[in-house]
Design a protein around this nucleic acid. Structure first.
Lengths: 64, 64
DNA sequence: ACATAAAGTAAAATATATTTTGCTTTATGT
DNA sequence: ACATAAAGCAAAATATATTTTACTTTATGT
């Protein structure tokens, strides 16, 4: 299950996966794997992604 | 940095750490470590805790 | 004071997130 | 069509979350 929300928020800020990765302090692959739903990031990383993209956990990571 | 919000939500539902752990499918120690802020759970586990406690990610895991 | 449930603590073992590297594919501009 | 940036993919190595076990401490009821 892909996470389209992150990708959308990222593209909206005109950031590449690599730029987001740098801001957040992880590798590009980590961002890619999260966006493509291949795994299960840590809470800390989720929060850092949220801060980088001006969103909250519920906005990016909550599924109904 | 302790996570008091989880503990409060848990106690409000009259669940012990062990009961919550069982619902969520982890060990009691994992719940304890998360409540006492000793580490950094996975997103999946956070979501499961939220569902067990009828809260959202922002309510339990977001710090301003 | 005693018994018992719940919570705190810790070390070693295991599972899995994350990194590193490198290659391939897709999108975009000229 | 070509060049280049961005994204997808994958295997091996490393870091760290989670389990397991066992013991200690704190809370609560009788």
């Amino acid at each position: 299950m892909k996470n389209k929300k992150i990708k959308m928020a990222r593209v909206e800020l005109d950031l590449s996966q690599e730029q987001l990765a740098e801001i957040v302090g992880v590798t590009r692959q980590t961002i890619h794997l999260i966006e493509s739903g291949k795994y299960n990031p840590s809470l800390k990383l989720c929060v850092e992604i949220c801060r980088a993209l001006n969103k909250t956990l519920d906005q990016l990571f909550w599924e109904d």
